[in-house]
């Protein structure tokens, strides 16, 4: 138990270093753009593939579950839209990104730690925590909501495609379902959640990597810890944010 409090304390001390004044904004800006590409743009294919299939599967499942003369067909499109917007494109995509991006960040920074690259930065007088972590946090907090938004669109398109190609429902009904009971706040809620999750994934993974010790085994362990800790924290904050923003 004491170790958990110690880790939380060290996490906040690290964040204090991360959010201190950068040595030179122009360098940090350039690094942020690099991280947008490495952590954000490179995650588009994975997010898109998973979203299109999940959208299609949800539509298929809903068409089976809601097969009743008393339930209008457009409810299938409505259910797909709600699932994608409220939960899949933010929370589930965030869990997927915790696996992909989180482990990447932890292993990158962990390797830099054990190969003394972080010590080298410190010796040069560079605030290594800010230099390495701040651009990643800014990049993901900016780009992950865009990933969530694209996931919503692609997922709903996946549902539409399955409707067109399998004939399980009339595509126009599906479109009507997507338009039905449209609440813009739900999209805002989802994007806010994703912004918070982006911070959680990046900061926790960077923390696990930054304090890695020893050898490559420890880097692997730090990487696993990053994914586990990020995923659990995402779940906790999902509950808290839903309570605050939707009720």
């Amino acid at each position: 138990m004491f170790k958990i409090f110690e880790a939380i304390g060290r996490y906040f001390i690290l964040m204090g270093k991360v959010f201190s004044r950068p040595e030179k904004w122009s360098i940090y800006w350039r690094r942020t753009l690099d991280e947008v590409e490495a952590l954000g743009i490179n995650s588009i294919p994975l997010t898109a593939i998973i979203s299109v299939f999940i959208g299609a599967v949800i539509t298929l499942q809903m068409s089976i579950s809601l097969e009743s003369p008393f339930i209008p067909q457009y409810m299938i499109g409505y259910a797909t839209k709600e699932t994608m917007i409220l939960e899949f494109s933010s929370t589930v995509v965030a869990i997927i990104l915790a696996g992909k991006v989180g482990s990447n960040i932890a292993s990158e920074i962990g390797t830099m730690r054990i190969t003394e690259q972080i010590d080298a930065l410190e010796i040069m007088g560079i605030n290594s925590a800010a230099y390495l972590i701040l651009p990643k946090i800014i990049a993901t907090m900016f780009f992950f909501p865009l990933l969530a938004a694209s996931s919503m669109i692609i997922g709903m398109a996946g549902g539409y495609l399955i409707a067109v190609f399998t004939g399980i429902m009339i595509p126009d009904d599906y479109i009507e379902g997507l338009r039905y009971c449209y609440v813009p706040w739900e999209i805002a809620y989802s994007l806010i959640k994703m912004t918070v999750f982006a911070y959680i994934i990046t900061s926790i993974s960077a923390f696990c990597g930054y304090y890695a010790k020893g050898n490559s085994l420890e880097v692997g362990r730090a990487s696993t810890q990053a994914v586990v800790a990020s995923s659990i924290t995402i779940m906790i904050f999902n509950l808290i944010l839903t309570q605050i923003l939707l009720t």
Partner: peptide, 13 residues
């Protein structure tokens, strides 16, 4: 004012 050469070089990969 300090330069340091580490055992493994510690160049940024």
């Amino acid at each position: 004012d300090i330069g340091m050469i580490f055992q493994g070089g510690a160049l940024i990969d």
